[in-house]
């Protein structure tokens, strides 16, 4: 299990000559709650796309000893890399329970698939508990408020047995209370997993980040604890427009 970490070296993504990610090297150990911040267009989401097979990239992204780059999206997921998107994408017509059950089932054989779900799998029950959606389990996911949809997404990552969680702006559009709850949730599930959070919300970052990587123009600008990063003059320079916020 000590091989359970994410190691990027010299990851590069180019779109028609435009370099979106320019040689990113970083290591995220297990149990780390890593925040990935940076101005708009810094390449944060593109980096996540590259790791999950959505954007073609060069370089290397190792999970343990397994190379992720060049594999198909669903194969990477099966290796234990899960992600969410900026807008919550759950199956609106299916219930919360069905959503989680589908997420839990990528390894099911054809015979299991052709049968009905006779009982709720234990890991689904557990995830409902963890993300706090027990009361709404039989509701269609489409009627959930925004915050609960995001938690359902995180729950789906848990049941699909993701050991690396890549979350793209999970608290965008949430109320203060929902943000705090989400932060606690990430702390709880992050203990045994590797969690990378792409985020714009600096308050949220200050409250919950174990470590921070700052991206700028596709490159790693600074890396360290929240205090170290905040004290870095280069970070302050990049965030000049919002320097007061970062430095506060």
């Amino acid at each position: 299990m000590n091989a359970d970490y994410l190691e990027l070296s010299d990851v590069r993504v180019t779109f028609d000559g435009f370099v979106a990610v320019d040689g990113v090297t970083m290591t995220v150990p297990r149990g780390d709650l890593r925040f990935l911040i940076g101005p708009n267009g810094a390449g944060k989401t593109t980096l996540v796309d590259a790791i999950t097979g959505l954007a073609p990239a060069t370089g290397s992204a190792l999970f343990g000893r397994t190379e992720l780059l060049g594999r198909k999206v669903h194969r990477i997921v099966r290796l234990g890399i899960g992600r969410t998107f900026q807008t919550a994408t759950v199956f609106e017509n299916l219930t919360v329970l069905q959503n989680l059950d589908i997420a839990a089932g990528a390894g099911r054989g054809p015979l299991t698939l052709l049968r009905r779900r006779s009982s709720v799998p234990a890991e689904v029950e557990e995830a409902l508990e963890t993300v706090g959606l027990v009361d709404v389990r039989d509701k269609p996911a489409g009627v959930l408020p925004h915050g609960q949809k995001q938690w359902l997404e995180i729950g789906m990552l848990i049941v699909q047995n993701a050991r690396v969680l890549l979350l793209d702006e999970p608290v965008a559009g949430m109320s203060a209370q929902e943000r705090a709850d989400t932060g606690e949730l990430l702390r709880r599930i992050g203990a045994e997993r590797t969690v990378v959070v792409v985020e714009h919300d600096m308050d949220f970052m200050r409250c919950f980040a174990d470590s921070v990587t700052v991206l700028h123009a596709g490159k790693v600008l600074s890396e360290g604890t929240v205090a170290q990063v905040q004290a870095d003059p280069r970070v302050q320079e990049v965030y000049l427009g919002t320097a007061a916020e970062v430095g506060a």
């Binding site: 999950t52 669903h74 997921v77 899960g82 994408t89 199956f91 017509n93 299916l94 589908i102 990528a106």
Partner: peptide
């Protein structure tokens, strides 16, 4: 039904 409604999301659950 999940594929019908959100094909890309299903891919990110580890299915083809």
């Amino acid at each position: 039904m999940a594929v019908r409604d959100q094909e890309e999301r299903v891919r990110f659950l580890g299915y083809d």
